[in-house]
Design a protein around this nucleic acid. Structure first.
Length: 288
DNA sequence: AGAGCACCGCAAAACTGAAG
DNA sequence: CTTCAGTTTTGCGGTGCTCT
């Protein structure tokens, strides 16, 4: 199975054109040429293409569900789109894009949700569309056009982090559920330390790019030192990462306590006889 | 270079108000 | 009081582009 590449992007355009969309809904028309993005040096003259947004959003979420489905299956789980679970802040208006669940239905109980994915993918490279031949041709990578794709946008990162925090602060029921953000671009320099800290502190278990070659000419960021951000080279790496996340149960916790309180909690918890029991006691006391 | 504002299309949820 | 059609609000989606 292939990860994200230019063929997927071309297929998005061709599939969507074939089924119902007009070229005007998917491309910018500049000097009688259809472009996926505004190339640097051109101007969209204030108008922003909006009609493509939900289409590409839906397409990438569906694509992720498909590529994750066999992995979920090997774990005895299901990759479900649009998961709703009020207990962990996944409402009808703001569901999980994709989640691994024990049953294949959208409405879930918290204990049956095992892994949550937030999808933040878009068209990465630029393309031109030929109306006569109805073909798509590659025009340039993401450095050649104006808008930034996927996780290179600061507000995409903020939206993903915000959604994750919203789940983490919804209560205890989401504490054992890993949260992943999936994109198809690198991240910016300024988020390197932040994604690593988010991983170290347990808020978000990773930002994963499923696009091995977002740019062929330029070098790009493939991973961060503590692996808060990773670019997968192939399907097997993605599979391995999912497996390892679910191999050991873990628990998210956070707190703001005085040293005295913390010391008391540790002292009491340390009287338990095993590491697991000590951890359980510690977490229980933390929440008193 | 990149943070973040301003957009707009769409769909579902929430609200409003008039009719029964 | 309930119903229900119509209207407003909310939130997701990804984009261009200014300003620091």
């Amino acid at each position: 199975m292939d990860l994200w590449d230019r063929e997927r992007e071309k297929n998005f355009f061709l599939d969507t054109l074939k089924s119902f969309a007009s070229p005007e809904q998917l491309f910018y028309k500049l000097e009688d040429t259809y472009y996926a993005y505004i190339p640097k040096g051109f101007s969209a003259k204030g108008q922003v293409l909006q009609s493509r947004n939900s289409l590409i959003g839906h397409y990438t979420e569906k694509w992720c569900q498909k590529i994750l489905a066999p992995i979920a299956h090997k774990l005895g789980l299901h990759a479900v789109q649009g998961v709703i679970c009020e207990d962990i802040a996944l409402t009808r208006q703001s569901p999980a894009d994709v989640a691994f669940c024990t049953t294949p239905v959208a409405e879930q109980e918290a204990k049956n949700v095992k892994l949550i994915f937030e999808i933040k993918m878009s068209i990465v490279s630029n393309y031109r569309y030929d109306v006569q031949t109805r073909t798509i041709s590659y025009y340039g990578d993401y450095t050649t056009h104006q808008g930034n794709p996927s996780l290179l946008r600061s507000d995409s990162m903020l939206k993903a982090i915000g959604k994750a925090i919203n789940i983490r602060v919804s209560g205890d029921k989401a504490s054992g559920i890993p949260l992943l953000v999936i994109g198809n671009s690198p991240i910016t320099e300024s988020y390197i330390e932040k994604v690593d800290f988010l991983k170290e502190s347990g808020v978000i278990q990773g930002f994963w790019s499923l696009n091995p070659y977002p740019s062929e000419s330029k070098s790009f960021l493939k991973r961060t030192p503590k692996k808060g951000f990773l670019t997968f080279e192939n399907y097997e790496e993605l599979e391995k990462a999912c497996f390892s996340l679910l191999s050991t149960p873990f628990f998210y916790f956070s707190s703001m306590k005085t040293k005295k309180e913390l010391g008391r909690i540790i002292a009491i918890a340390s009287k338990e006889s095993t590491d697991i029991e000590r951890a359980e006691k510690f977490l229980a006391l933390l929440r008193e």
